[in-house]
Design a protein around this nucleic acid. Structure first.
Lengths: 188, 188
DNA sequence: CAATTGTTTCAGATATTAATGAAACCACCC
DNA sequence: GGGTGGTTTCATTAATATCTGAAACAATTG
């Protein structure tokens, strides 16, 4: 039947997107709403979403708000209509950028702070420890330093990729691959 | 007191690591066990872990198994001791690689399949649709194509980074940054 | 300013997920 | 084969996260 191919595609995509979101820290409904808006590119109002996804008003409202806070969708209005509509007009790369920045701020920054604090803590108390403990403390510190370095390296890499924008990603990857090949040949 | 700096550091790190894991799809206990093994680098048996983290035998056993399945820790034995011990001897980069590969296999592959299926579905039914629907279908397809391209680009980038190994990351990032700067100047 | 339309909140209900602990299991040794 | 030390399973319980729906709230209109 004519309409089914579209609807089926939409629903399948929405369901999977929702599941995927769930394995990340994003609630299923939130991911599904996003999928719906992203895929259609059209403005939807709260009632549309309630009907399409069969969720309650409260649920729809909450998750729409979260999505707006994340910067993944935005409010909009249709002329001649009092209702608020929501729309997703970011492309995949912009979405990635938004999510990355948000998660970094919410999750990575705190762990960096924690590690720094742990290391300071260790350093200040180092003197008071006997030899065995000092060795152990040193081992901890090395691990923590490694971790910090790793995080910084990934951050730097991400910044570079993000700031270069989606349009250039293929060029970047190409360059990177060539470079990596070079590094591998000449050794570290 | 002498012992406290070590213990405090350890516990703080473990707690945070656990929380962080929880916001990813990793259960708190699993992340905490991993943090404990990672930070100390020492072999622990099930009973050690039960005591250190105050969890039940079943919980410890289950999560140890998961960690082994993920490839993040491995079983080992101490001579003269029948018990099984567990150890984490991967560095941050190896961990990243392991987790990335695992998550890609478990979460990204399925969504690629879904999208491909959606697009095939759309393509085969395209002819039967009237003009409006065709336009809409086309729009869906474009979105899906974008998404696929994005995923492939990220995969390629990740492969490059992963295959180059942790030791070379700084060189890679440096090269990438220089290149990105070049691209930005000359335009896409 | 009352009626209408639309949005947000929140206490309680529901569903999902993780943890417990006792029992079953396994492998080895004597 | 039976005892011992160790590991795994799984039904039950506990904790979390999520969703609902009705009520409170805001804004707009006639």
């Amino acid at each position: 039947m004519a309409e089914d191919a579209l609807t089926r595609t939409r629903n399948l995509f929405i369901r999977r997107w929702g599941e995927m979101g769930a394995t990340w820290g994003i609630s299923r409904t939130m991911a599904e709403i996003h999928a719906l808006l992203f895929l259609t590119g059209e403005p939807f109002c709260t009632d549309d979403i309630m009907e399409q996804l069969q969720v309650s008003r409260g649920n729809a409202s909450m998750n729409l708000r979260h999505l707006v806070n994340w910067g993944l969708i935005r409010r909009t209005h249709l002329r001649g209509d009092r209702k608020e509509y929501f729309i997703s007009d970011l492309d995949a790369w912009q979405m990635f950028e938004t999510i990355t920045r948000e998660r970094r701020r919410r999750e990575v920054e705190p762990i960096i702070e924690t590690i720094d604090r742990c290391r300071k803590d260790l350093a200040t108390e180092m003197d008071g420890l006997d030899a065995d403990k000092q060795t152990e403390a040193k081992r901890y510190d090395e691990k923590l330093e490694d971790m910090i370095e790793f995080i910084h390296a990934v951050n730097a890499l991400l910044d570079t990729v993000l700031s270069s924008g989606g349009g250039k990603i293929r060029k970047l990857t190409g360059a990177l691959m060539r470079f990596a090949a070079g590094v591998r040949q000449t050794g570290s």
